Every structure is written in C-alpha cells, then in structure tokens.
Lab assay of single mutants.
Amino acid sequence: PQVPQCKALYAYDAQDTDELSFNANDIIDIIKEDPSGWWTGRLRGKQGLFPNNYVTKI
C-alpha cells in the first residue's frame, strides 16, 4: 500500500531531538497523524514529530 505523504509548505527547524526538520517543498512520509496537530513523519532516513500546519497532504 502507498504510504501517505505530505508536502512542506514552509521550512521547519526542529526545536527538540524528537522533532523533524525540513525545507519548503520537501515530501515527507506520514507515519502517524495525531489530533494534537503534531504528526510523525519520515524524511531522509530520519523520523520525528512535526507540526501539521506546515504541510499539506498530497
């Protein structure tokens, strides 16, 4: 099955070790969508939390 993905609308710099940094237009694999607004994703071999208001699902 296809892994859900999202595209970064803005760059995000991780504020903690469990967060994921990314650049605008990066494509992130979505591991888990949480109602809190912090999703778990994977990018370039690293997994971490990121704010879903920085991305749009594709």
Rank of each mutant, 00 (worst) to 15 (best):
P1W: 08
P1M: 13
Q2V: 09
Q2N: 15
Q2G: 11
Q2F: 03
Q5N: 13
Q5S: 12
Q5M: 13
C6E: 02
C6I: 03
K7S: 09
K7R: 11
A8F: 03
A8T: 04
A8C: 09
L9E: 10
L9K: 09
L9C: 08
Y10E: 08
Y10V: 11
A11H: 14
A11P: 14
A11E: 13
Y12K: 04
D13H: 10
A14N: 04
A14Q: 06
A14C: 07
A14W: 00
A14E: 03
A14L: 00
Q15A: 12
D16F: 09
D16Y: 11
D16C: 13
D16M: 11
D16S: 12
T17Q: 12
D18T: 11
D18M: 12
D18I: 09
E19H: 15
S21I: 01
S21C: 08
S21E: 07
F22H: 02
F22L: 04
F22S: 02
N23L: 12
N23S: 14
N23H: 13
A24K: 13
N25W: 08
N25D: 13
N25V: 02
N25C: 11
N25P: 01
D26W: 00
I27M: 10
I27Y: 09
I28V: 04
D29P: 00
D29Y: 07
D29K: 04
I30T: 02
I30Q: 01
I30F: 02
I30E: 01
I30R: 00
I31S: 03
K32V: 11
K32M: 11
E33S: 05
D34C: 14
D34L: 06
P35E: 14
P35A: 12
S36T: 12
G37V: 02
G37H: 01
G37L: 03
W39S: 10
T40N: 05
T40K: 09
G41N: 01
R42P: 01
R42M: 05
L43G: 02
L43S: 07
L43R: 05
R44N: 15
R44D: 14
R44I: 02
G45H: 11
G45T: 05
K46C: 11
K46I: 05
Q47A: 08
Q47E: 12
G48M: 03
L49R: 15
P51L: 08
P51W: 10
N52F: 14
N52G: 15
N52E: 15
N52I: 11
N53E: 12
Y54I: 06
Y54A: 13
V55H: 03
T56I: 07
T56D: 13
T56P: 04
T56E: 15
K57E: 07
K57R: 10
K57Q: 06
I58C: 04
I58R: 06
I58F: 11
I58S: 10
I58H: 06
I58V: 13
